[in-house]
Simulated scan of single mutants.
Amino acid sequence: MTKLNKLKWVVAIAAAFFVGTTFTSKVSAATINNDYALSSNQGSSLRTSNNVIIAHATAVYAPAKNVAIYENREWSNTTAYVQYVVGDGGKIYRVGAEGYQAWGAGSWANANAPVQIELAQTYDNAEFHKDYVTYVNLLRSSAIKYGIPTDVDSSAWR
Rank of each mutant, 00 (worst) to 15 (best):
N5I: 15
N5Q: 15
N5C: 07
N5K: 15
K6S: 09
K6F: 11
K6E: 12
K6R: 13
K6G: 03
L7T: 00
K8I: 14
K8T: 07
K8L: 08
W9P: 00
W9V: 14
W9M: 14
V10A: 08
V10Q: 09
V10P: 00
V10G: 05
V10C: 05
V10H: 06
V11P: 00
V11Y: 00
A12C: 07
A12L: 14
A12I: 08
I13T: 10
I13H: 08
A14G: 07
A15W: 01
A15K: 12
A15P: 00
A16D: 11
A16K: 10
A16N: 11
F17A: 07
F17D: 06
F17I: 03
F17H: 12
F17C: 05
F17M: 09
F18G: 00
F18S: 03
V19M: 13
V19T: 13
V19C: 13
G20C: 05
G20R: 05
G20E: 05
T21L: 12
T21Y: 15
T22Q: 13
F23S: 06
F23T: 08
F23G: 04
T24F: 11
T24M: 08
S25L: 10
S25C: 05
K26S: 14
K26E: 08
K26T: 10
K26V: 02
V27R: 02
V27L: 09
V27N: 01
V27P: 00
A29I: 07
A30C: 07
A30R: 03
A30W: 00
A30N: 04
A30H: 01
T31I: 12
I32S: 03
I32R: 03
I32C: 05
N33C: 09
N34P: 00
N34V: 08
N34L: 12
N34Y: 14
D35P: 01
D35R: 13
D35T: 13
D35K: 14
Y36W: 15
Y36E: 02
A37H: 02
A37S: 13
L38Q: 03
L38G: 01
L38I: 10
S39N: 13
S39T: 15
S39I: 06
S39G: 13
S40G: 06
S40W: 01
S40L: 08
S40E: 12
N41P: 00
N41E: 11
Q42N: 05
Q42H: 08
G43N: 08
G43T: 05
G43Y: 01
G43R: 03
G43V: 05
G43P: 01
S44D: 11
S44I: 07
S44Y: 06
S45P: 01
L46N: 14
R47W: 06
R47S: 15
R47D: 10
T48N: 03
T48F: 02
T48S: 06
T48L: 06
S49H: 12
S49G: 09
S49E: 13
S49K: 15
N50S: 12
N50C: 07
N51S: 12
N51D: 13
